[in-house]
Design a protein around this nucleic acid. Structure first.
Length: 227
DNA sequence: CGAGTTTGACCTGCGC
DNA sequence: GCGCAGGTCAAACTCG
């Protein structure tokens, strides 16, 4: 291959990379829009639920436990959810309504912290963990980003989902406190998405992982000879 | 050796 | 009172 052909080949590669970047950008935008739509739909369903509850005159306890759903790798059968706190497992039980065991954790970051959580695989989707938090932490969380970096590569989905800022994570708490109009819900949720995105873009581990994933995807498209 | 996990035993609340 | 199910305890075990 002479110099001229080499230049053409490089130009071709640059063109492919640009196209790939554009495609990924569009995909990212689509995903962001999907997330917003899902958030809006969630809030609409939530307001319906509140209406139904009001109709039935149900009393919601002030210290109601909050539940969070965390998507994990389907072949990851551990019940560990990284959420910025340190947990000590103190029990595991098989329950009647679900074939997968339920694990019980206590917060071990502070000896006097009363917070407990229960983790159990969802009945409908085994890749989803249902985490129920009880009580409030009497101390600050630490190292959300550190948790991302210490997670094993095969549980990236879990780590990235579970280590969002607590304001976004505690959807149900947020939901229980709000029964205003849908606009308020949507704006609030968008604010939280913004917080979350800001948090992720500030996280060098996340951006490095994202860059690596993009590079990997591009190199796969170009084939082993071009890597 | 200390911290965390596992797991069987025990406690408690609830429905019958 | 009894049985069942969920929750907790604690001794044994594992791992770094």
């Amino acid at each position: 291959m002479d110099a001229h052909e080499e230049v053409i080949s490089y130009k071709e590669k640059v063109k492919n990379l640009k196209a790939e970047c554009e495609r990924l950008g569009k995909e990212n935008e689509n995903l962001r829009l999907m997330l917003e739509v899902m958030g809006d739909q969630y809030n609409i369903l939530l307001s319906h639920l509140h209406n139904l509850k009001d109709e039935n005159h149900q009393v919601v306890a002030a210290a109601k436990p909050s539940s969070v759903f965390v998507r994990t790798n389907s072949n990851d059968n551990s019940l560990i959810v990284k959420d910025g706190f340190q947990w000590r497992k103190y029990g595991q039980k098989n329950t009647k309504d679900n074939p997968s065991p339920r694990a019980y954790f206590k917060c071990s970051m502070a000896p006097s912290c009363p917070v407990k959580k229960k983790v159990q695989r969802s009945l409908e989707d085994e890749s989803v963990l249902m985490v129920t938090y009880e009580g409030e932490h009497n101390h600050a969380a630490h190292g959300l980003a550190t948790d991302c970096s210490t997670s094993s590569p095969d549980n990236t989905i879990r780590a990235s989902t579970a280590t969002f800022p607590s304001s976004l994570r505690a959807n149900q708490d947020y939901a229980a406190d709000n029964n205003d109009n849908d606009d308020h819900h949507s704006n609030s949720f968008r604010t939280k998405i913004g917080e979350c995105m800001a948090y992720l873009t500030k996280d060098s581990n996340f951006t490095a992982a994202l860059a690596a994933a993009v590079a990997h995807s591009i190199s796969e498209k170009l084939g082993p000879n071009n890597a």
